[in-house]
Structures are given as structure tokens and as C-alpha cells.
Write a protein that binds this DNA or RNA. Sequence first.
DNA 1: ACAAACTCTGTGAACGCTAACAATGACACT
DNA 2: AGTGTCATTGTTAGCGTTCACAGAGTTTGT
Lengths: 353, 353
Amino acid sequence: MSSTAQTHGRPRRAPTMADVAQRAGVSHQTVSRVLSNHPNVRDTTRAEVQRAIDELGYRRNSSARALVTRRTLTLGVVACNPTLFGPASMLFGLEEAARDEGYMASAVTLRRYTAKALEEAIDHLSEWGVEGIVVIVPHREAVAALAELRLPFPVVTVEGGHTLPIPGVSVDQELGARLATGHLLGAGHRTVWHVAGPPDWLEAEARVKGWRETLEEAGAEVPPPLVGDWTPLSGYRAGQELAGRVAAGSARRSAADVTAVFVANDQMALGVLRAFREAGLSVPGQVAIAGFDDIPEAEFFAPPLTTVRQDFAAVGQASIRLLVDRLEAGGLPDDERVVIEPRLIVRRSSTLT
Amino acid sequence: MSSTAQTHGRPRRAPTMADVAQRAGVSHQTVSRVLSNHPNVRDTTRAEVQRAIDELGYRRNSSARALVTRRTLTLGVVACNPTLFGPASMLFGLEEAARDEGYMASAVTLRRYTAKALEEAIDHLSEWGVEGIVVIVPHREAVAALAELRLPFPVVTVEGGHTLPIPGVSVDQELGARLATGHLLGAGHRTVWHVAGPPDWLEAEARVKGWRETLEEAGAEVPPPLVGDWTPLSGYRAGQELAGRVAAGSARRSAADVTAVFVANDQMALGVLRAFREAGLSVPGQVAIAGFDDIPEAEFFAPPLTTVRQDFAAVGQASIRLLVDRLEAGGLPDDERVVIEPRLIVRRSSTLT
DNA sequence: ACAAACTCTGTGAACGCTAACAATGACACT
DNA sequence: AGTGTCATTGTTAGCGTTCACAGAGTTTGT
């Protein structure tokens, strides 16, 4: 099967289809037919060709093939810092889904989301002949930049918001925020504070919106959200800030006292937990906390973290599906959306047992 | 107004070099020269060609180019589950390094490390014409399988051990384990327990070795290592086991009492921390702990975790370097090794202040 | 002034494959 | 026998580049 052993004589040059043809005593076209499983090849011929292929360790030259078929079977992915759990999982799912569809996925990762970086990444990909790309753009400026570009191949966004005439997939961030906030309110808290992500991230914005609206609908006061940058450190700082506002002892309680916090991702929630711990506050005793993402560590935080789980694999599959559909059929609508529903995972950090 | 608007909307077919040539009034060869920055082109000609290129939005066809130059400028990467911090960081560094060298990196991710999965992944990559591959194989069976394959292109391993005649990059896991273990011994502990990774992982094995030898050299007793599978849950279970052996109160102390634990990765260390917390044990008060990896969360664990940091970006760069060298020169040694030194990061989990 | 060198540009032939069509032989049916 | 159909195989013509070389101008040296 993979006995590509031609290490014997001289590995001069990779064998070509003509070499195989000659060895099997047929024309190169017959070899081509065997390779592409064309039905009209006699069994004995097929076997002989196959034997020649195996003996020579022949592999089709993908460039020549791509040149004539005008199909590179390659998809591009533009992603952001994939050391974060979310983006990494998405990339993983994306690549796997592409492979299942018979495509190769090539990712370019961005350190920062600027219009220029995005453009360069797309440039780099199209230089290599991708047939289409998936852009993971949870960032406002990047989305705007993407809208400007007129690309000669299909594009699908992930978490790119729903304002562009570009097909896209996203998790319902707003719903996720509603689930978390509603859960905390349901546990009897007068209101829920929020540690938000960076304001230029669409996901952060949507989570703020879901949180705010849930509070408003419940007639609860809406405290000013604190702002972090997704890192544990920023959560820690926000946590220190919040710790100062927790009602000390059973002194005069005001509606603005911090008794519940919805943190926009798990890493920041970890920082908040540390700040509270250092301030001597008990979670969930004095303050209840919920996060977002359900990173593998969340279950083992102190205490285990209530959070919102996103199905990244589903997002990856859906976006590849959207892209491949556009490659193989044509004229599909530019405003197709797939929305994946998140799920609330309740753990100790929000429940007084 | 004919309905065959060809200059309107999107052009029927991507412009070719001949189109550019015609528009600029030169031959296709001159266009090629402009594109590859050949010096012998008159400035005015170059400008005209450039203008035609811009106007048509021309891009070189990578397949045609690859066909004739026999260079696809594509590298393959075989990685394992990249939702773990280490592998993801490595992938990120690898891709970036490849891009800097003018190559495109395409990754295939494995759910599990079996010889078959590895072979399929490599097969998938060579189907797309990669010029060489980086295989991240911290797994014994996979390394063995890789050694069997005779591939028609250069291969570089990452964390693949040093037994194969294949160039490779790795972090000095043994040294990392020595640093952590030595640090704990240096803090006055009689011995150090160990929660190891899965035995079929080379990294796990090397960390066990470094730990064991450090103890032996210090004349300390070597307790039996517990075994986990890198997940927080497995660490939690190991932690419960260890918690039972911590000297209760100041009762009779034996040399086998657990006072310090070196855990083979941070995620498991998190599980251990939780188990100890639940058992009412204080860290570092009663037990000191050190992990491995320095994931971004480690600093915010309860307490902040002493751990060993690996420079994944450096690993990525070194492996691409190794690979590209073999692509561009030839006849380089098959046993070249690059070893990256890890660094101990001391935090509260191991220090009584 | 003439050959030699150098600069710039064009021509034709690959590169290895697939698509379209042509050719061959076997078989069945008038 | 003559014709049509089908299964199987071969032939030819590109796909869009780069490479090797040839040609046309232009400069240089003597």
C-alpha cells in the first residue's frame, strides 16, 4: 500500500504516468482511467496497471492534475491565535471536516486582527491556489475589511456577525449569555455583574447584549460591565475591582452589591476566581460565577466552573459544508447562515448546595 | 446591450500570463520575468507589465508553476490533538516559521496515534504534493511506524526521540523533569512523588527518567509513579490516591510520606490540586506541587503553579529550519538533532514563604 | 569602423496530467 | 453479410507556467 520503496536503483526522478503505462504495456490514458476508477477498464488490464503502479511506487502529480482540472482541492483557513482553546478547537474541527470532504485545509494564523494582516493572510493563501476560504473573524475591524475585499473565490465566515452578504456560521453567543445570566438570576441574585471581552470582538459584544437584555427583561439593574482582554490576568484585575464591591459581612446591602458575575470566557473567570480567593471571598458562598467556553480545565477550577459550552466541531463542519456547497454547486445565496446553539453547563461555582 | 457581458461581473476565467502579455504588448516571457524580478527588464517595460497585472488582477497559477519548477513550496505537518496547549502552540509556531521561509504549511491532525492513522495522514499529505513533512510524534508506536516508512521526501520529527536515523527537534524533557524535581528536593523535601503521563508517550517516559535519576542521585527514595493520561480528570484521580498518603497531622512521619509531587503536565496538576483541596490539604503548606508546560492558566491556579516552560515557538522554527535546509541543500546528515532547553518557572505551589 | 560583449525581448519546447474524440474488436440483430 | 451498439483502448491537444536558447539593439574596445 505505502511501499513507496524505490530506494533501490536510482531514485532519479519520480515515476510518471508514462512510466507506469510503459511498464504495464498500455497507454497513459488507461493508467489515468485506472487511477480515477473509470468503469470501462478490463479487470486484467486494471490489475496489471495496478501492479506497475505498486512496483514503481507511482503517485499522481498533484500539480499537473490541478493544472488541467482547474481544481486544487485546497481550502484556506484564516484563524486567530490558536493557542486559545476556542480557536484551536475550531481549527481542528475545520481541518477534519475538510479532509472528510476530500479537501486539504491550509491554515494561516494571525497574531493580530488588523485589516492589513487579514489581507496578507488571504493573499498568502490565494498565492497557493486555494479554491475557497473560511475566515474566522470574531473581530469588528476584520469583518469590515473582509467586506471590502472582492475575492475571486467563495468565502465563508465564522463568528463574523450577520451583517455581511457573506455566508457564515456562528454560535449563538447572545443565547449563551442569556443562559448564563438567566441561570444566575434564577438562583435568586438581584442582579448579575459582567466581565466582558474586548469591545472590538463581536463575540464579546454579543455576550454583553445577551447579558444586558436578560437583566432588563427581568427588571434587574444593569451594572456597568468591566472589560478584559480574554486573558486570565485581565480577569484577575477585574476580579480585584469587583471584590471591592462585594458586601462586606452583612452590612448595608445595596442593589449594586456584587453577588453574581458572568465572565465572558473561562480564562478570565479563572482570574476572577483567584482575585476573589485572595480577597477572602468564597465562591459560590458569597459570589456566584459563570464563565463561557467550557475549556477542559473548567471542571477542575476551584470551585468547578459553571460555563457555556460551544460545539466547535459542529461549527467547523458547518462552515466546510457551506464552502464546499458553493464550490461544487454555484449560485447559492450569499446570506446563508448557520447558527449553532450553545449549552449551559452548571457546576459548583454558581450553585449553593 | 448584449447579454454576453464578459468584461462585466466576474470574468469568465482567471486571466493568464498571456492575457497580461497581450495587454502590455509584450511576450508572456517578459511578464514572467517581471514577476520573478529578473534584472534584465527595462524599467518602462516593467512598469507597463505591472500596470497590466494590476488592471487585470492577475495572479500566477500556482499549479502551472509547480508543475514546471517541480516545487510546490508546501510542507506537511502531522500533529496530534491540537486542543492541548502544547501541540497547538507547536502547530502555531510551525505554521508561522514555514510562512516566514516562503512555504505553506498544511497540517493533518490525528485523533489517535496508531501506525495506520499516521500512515493515512502522511498519505493524505503526499497526495497533495508536499515537499517534506514535520511529524510530531511523542508516541512510541508512531515513531516505530514512521521508521518503517521509506518516504520519497525529507521528514523531520518533533519529540520523536533520538533513536531513529531521522533529523529531529525536541525539548529536553529529562532536563525539565530534573529541574522540577531538583527544585522540590532543594526546598527540603525528603522525596518527590510523580504523576506520570501515559507510558507510551516518549515525553512521559523522559520525564519519569529525569525525575527518577534526580532522586537517585540525591540518594532519595523513589516512590512508585502514578500514571495519568494528561487530562485533568486523571490528575484528579491520582491526587485522590496521593491525598491518602499525606501524613495526617504530625503523626509518625515516614520517608514515603507525600510532601512534594511533580506532575507530568499542568492539566493533571490542576486535577491534583482539586483533589488535595477536597481532601483539605493545603498547597504548598502540606504538599508542594510542580507541573510541566506552563499553560497560560497555570499562573492563576489555586495556588499559582510552579511548572516547566517549553519554548514551542523555538521548536517550530527549528524543525522548519531543519526541513527547509534539506529541501534546499541535499545530502545533509540524517541524525541531526536540535534540543531546546526548558525553563523552570517557580510559583507559589512549591514555595513556602 | 567592425567585432565583441552586453542588454533586453521573443520563440518554442517541455512539465505530467485529463478531456475529447477516434479507433478497434466483439457481439447482437436485421 | 451489413449495420448498430457497446466495451475497451489509444491519440491528440491543451492546461499556464518556466527554461533554454535565439534574435535584435546598444554599447564598448581597438
